[in-house]
Amino acid sequence: MLKLRDGIVELYRKVATSLPPDVEEAIKAAHAVEKKGSNAKRALQIILENIRLARETVRPLCQDTGVPVFYVKNPIGISQMELEKTIIEATRIATERIPLRPNAVDIITEKNSGDNTGIGFPVLYFKETQGSTLTIDLMMKGAGCENIGQTYKLPYEELKANRDLEGVRRCVLDAVCKVQGKGCPPYILGIGIGATKDQVTRLSKEQLMRKIQDVNEISSISDIEKRLLKEINSLGIGPLGFGGKTTALGVKIGVNHRHPASYFVDISVSCWANRRGRLIW
């Protein structure tokens, strides 16, 4: 699996040093609408310049190269254990070569492993698929925005949030207002709704893999995604919290069935540097 290992190293390089075109386009559009001479416009200008510089000089566009999160779709018959080994080996090589910032810290000894590998690090999700194509999606998730994610349990009296999509809307607006500019806006928000805590956090993070222009196939969810984006951008928090028209670039919601007694809403936040990429093998 030597070639695959090198392919994953290159995937790391691409994801760490260049932003997906849809995100860059959304930032350009945001830059165009911010007021001339404003701090918001100045900040987006520097962000765009940074994206160009990082790509051209092949350097990580953010020094926090984050927690690597892999979503692997493997054809029947390909060993997940072998894939896991290969990904871990590629992570070590990528950390040294690109270089990435070593981010894996031992809970007991507080020692940084130095190579971005450790217990549950990187994060790996596998799913078996039909056909012969191996698909490896990688998100490099910065910690600043990871820290501001939140989980709500409905109903929530303080917000007058019931167990319905209106309740979800109230939670999302509250969450953004609470965190203000602390996680590098403009944000991309991933929201997961469902029965269990672990399921909704995973679902909300998966939403961050969707392209900015991606439209939800469930029309009532698609409507609320659009409405929330508009409302979040009316809050005035703006790029990096400097004030302005662009607090979010996208809102993406995923739903699972829930238990009659449970209604969990989880919000995963990505900073503007929504680093994701795909390797098809």
């Binding site: 900040a43 520097i46 962000i47 510089l53 350097r59």
Partner: peptide, 13 residues
């Protein structure tokens, strides 16, 4: 002094 979050290549220069 608030600088530009995420603009790490630009700021490194």
């Amino acid at each position: 002094l608030h600088t530009i979050g995420g603009a790490a290549a630009y700021l490194a220069d």
